[in-house]
Design a protein around this nucleic acid. Structure first.
Lengths: 187, 187
DNA sequence: GTAAAAGCAGACAGAACGGTATAGCCCGGT
DNA sequence: ACCGGGCTATACCGTTCTGTCTGCTTTTAC
């Protein structure tokens, strides 16, 4: 049971943060959702902020690894990976329990640059961008940083648009834009 | 003075929401920043949420009008407007007191779809997208909705990237991507 | 000039916040 | 058999939250 506790707390917190926002979710609510005692939570996490940091990290890494695992497994052609990237983001976005890019939402709730959650979000966002830049580099793009950033912006914008107005088919349009940008960058 | 009170409250709230986030800013803090009595605030706004709604609306409209006013004044060629759009967003973004697109941050802090702030954010986001789609239509783009959404995603993503890691030159890369997309859409 | 409107200061209510303390229970290891 | 560590339940701390009330002063309008 001991090992499960931590996971249960993280899962409960993750769900609540996603549904109501981080600042709007109290410790008591997390405790109730996880079905545990308050002291148990504070036995595993020093403060609420520590819990927030770990939840944000996990969710972001889960997202990134879910995408990259699929890409590594099913695609070999490096350029094809860039296209497939949008397919897999689309699948992730179609999941009804998906609620946006974790590091983006976290950074919006903690705008102050010196805030630990904000700094973590910036790092995770950078990781994601670096990953896409890496894909562009493997695909032999001349300026992989430029295309990587552009594709990242498209994905972030698409996720936001889809969240704000469902059914806008944002990701499909992002994919079409990406194709044009990739082709243009290869020439 | 009576007319100024409202503006002073809105200005103070706007600054604080921008700097610390909406949920993290208490009414007492707003009152202190505005240099007024608490009852004066509640005399002008029924609840904090009412104040939030008006602040978000104003900031979003200010942004949109600042961009569109410049475009209408200085540019005549419809296609050129699409390019200049990124210049003016860039200038707005370079303003050190700028802190992201108001409706995006607000929607992140109030994720629940039935929340009034979230709904307002969705409407304001839609307004912005419609405006850009209108520009695309005037420029004779074949599928203005598609390009409008794509450019919107680029702008939103660029603003986020710039906020999360300053000096990434996100908007410049967004502009380059936009040029490619626009040229491709015109052909 | 005077009365009504609006602003002020500060106390206050009731709830929620993050976090702590305490006392007991249950269960596994030896 | 028993001991210790993790979990529970509950009460509690001080602070902060939104929102209200009151009594007094200033401004505004006619």
């Amino acid at each position: 049971m001991a090992k499960n506790m931590r996971e249960r707390i993280l899962a409960a917190a993750s769900n609540l943060f996603q549904a109501r926002g981080i600042n709007a979710t109290g410790v008591d609510t997390i405790v109730a959702e996880a079905g545990i005692a308050k002291m148990t939570l504070y036995n595993h996490f020093k403060t609420k902020e520590d819990l927030v940091l770990e939840v944000v990290t996990r969710r972001s890494r889960e997202f990134a690894e879910r995408i990259s695992a699929r890409l590594d497994k099913s695609v070999v052609d490096p350029t094809e990976k860039l296209y497939k990237l949008f397919d897999y983001v689309g699948e992730w976005l179609a999941d009804p329990q998906c609620s946006g890019l974790p590091f983006l939402k976290a950074s919006a709730e903690f705008p102050q640059p010196d805030n630990p959650v904000h700094q973590l979000s910036a790092e995770l966002s950078q990781e994601f961008r670096d990953y896409i830049t890496g894909l562009a580099r493997e695909a032999g793009i001349r300026e992989p940083e430029a295309l990587g950033l552009q594709l990242t912006m498209l994905i972030e914008g698409a996720v936001l648009s889809e969240q704000l107005s469902k059914g806008s088919n944002a990701l499909e349009h992002a994919r079409q834009a990406a194709r044009i940008l990739i082709e243009s960058a290869k020439r």
